[in-house]
Design a protein around this nucleic acid. Sequence first.
DNA 1: GCTTATTTTCTAAGCGCTTGCTTATACTGA
DNA 2: TCAGTATAAGCAAGCGCTTAGAAAATAAGC
Lengths: 199, 199
Amino acid sequence: MSESPSQVISPSKAAARIRAAAVDAFATSGYGGTTTREIAARLDMSPAAMYPHYRSKEELLFAISYEGHTAALDVVRNADLPDESPSTRLQALIGAFASWQATHHAQARVVQYELNALTPEHYRDVVKLRRDITHIVRSVVDAGAASGEFTVPDGEGVTLALMSLCVDICRWFPAGAYTEPKAVADLYAGLAMRLVGAA
Amino acid sequence: MSESPSQVISPSKAAARIRAAAVDAFATSGYGGTTTREIAARLDMSPAAMYPHYRSKEELLFAISYEGHTAALDVVRNADLPDESPSTRLQALIGAFASWQATHHAQARVVQYELNALTPEHYRDVVKLRRDITHIVRSVVDAGAASGEFTVPDGEGVTLALMSLCVDICRWFPAGAYTEPKAVADLYAGLAMRLVGAA
DNA sequence: GCTTATTTTCTAAGCGCTTGCTTATACTGA
DNA sequence: TCAGTATAAGCAAGCGCTTAGAAAATAAGC
C-alpha cells in the first residue's frame, strides 16, 4: 500500500527548500535537463541530501506538481462567489486564476509542462485536480448561458479557451506592459467577459 | 564566420528524417530528456548517424526550431488578405495560425517550449521570427481599431491574448470535441472576433 | 534543566550505467 | 573516382542513486 498523494508534500522546512530549488531548476532547464546534483548545488548541499526527503527525482517532481495543482485549485475555489451573478463570478474566477499563474509563473511552468515526466499513477492523480479546476470554470460558463447573461454557442470551446489563456501565462509572463499579476488579472477578467459574450 | 540561420536546415532527405524523429522525441520527453541515441534508434541508425548532418544536438534543435518558426510565419503571411476588412483579415490570420499549430502540434511543442535550450545566438535568431508573427497580428488589430470596426481598449493586451491562445494549442490538442485542426481554426476565428469587440 | 538514548538528516565516496560526441574505417551512389 | 554518408568502437564526463557513517535535531528519563 502506497501513501496518499497529499502525504507526498513533506511539511519539513528542508523539503520545502529542496522543492523551491527544484522548481527554479526545472523551470529553467526542464525536468530532463536538470540534474539532482544541480538542485543540491543551489542549496550548497551534497548530491545525496535530497534522498531522505524524496526517494527519487520523479517523486520530487510529483510533490511539486501536486502542491502546485492543489494550490491553484484552492485559489479558484476560494475565488468563486456562488451567490453572485455569472458575470461577477467569472471575472473573479479568471482574475484569481490568472493572477496565480502570473505570481507563481516558475512553479506553474513546471506544473504545466513537465506532466508527462510523471509516472502513470502520479499523472492520473494530478489530472484529477486539473479536471476539477476546469469543471468550476465550465459550470459558471454554463450558468451564464442558462440565465441568458452570456451568449455561448459552444461551452466546451469557450471553457477550453479560457483555461488555455490562463495556463499559457507562465510561458510569457512577464512581458511588455504586463509585468504585474494584477494587470494580467484585470486584462483577462475583461477578455473573459468578451469570450462569453457578456453584455 | 558562421553560416546564416537559413542554411542550417539541410535540404537532404536523411536530415529531414532525423529532424522528424527528433521532433517526436523532443515533444514526448523534452530536449533534455531525449538522448541522441534515442533519436537514432527511432530511425534504426547508429548513434553516430546524426553527426554528418548536425554537428550537435543543440544544432539539431535549432534547425527544428528555425524551420518551425519560418513555416508558421509563412502560413500567417500567406493567410493575410491586405485588401479585405480587418474582420475578414483577422479571422483568416487566426484561423490559419491556429490550424497550423493544431496540425503540427508536436513540432509546435518543440518550437514553443524548448527555446531556452538554444544557445544565445540561436535564441536571438528565432525570437526575431516570433516578433514578425506577432507584428502581423498586431497590425490587423490596430487597423480594426482605427477603422472603428474593432473596440480595443488595449491593443497590446489583446494581441498578447490572441497569440497566447494559438501558441497554447500544441499543449492540449487534440482534446474533447476538438480533434480536427479545422474545428480549432473555426472556434478560434470566432473567439478572436469577440476578443477584439467586432460587431 | 541537563544528560542520555533514539531518530533524522546530512556528507563523502563511489557504483554501474548513460551521456554527447569523436575517431577510424567501410560503404554507396553519381 | 571520390565526396558524402553510414558504422563499430570507444572516450571522458556526467548521470541517478546507494552506502556507511558523522553530525544534528528530537524525545525521554530523572
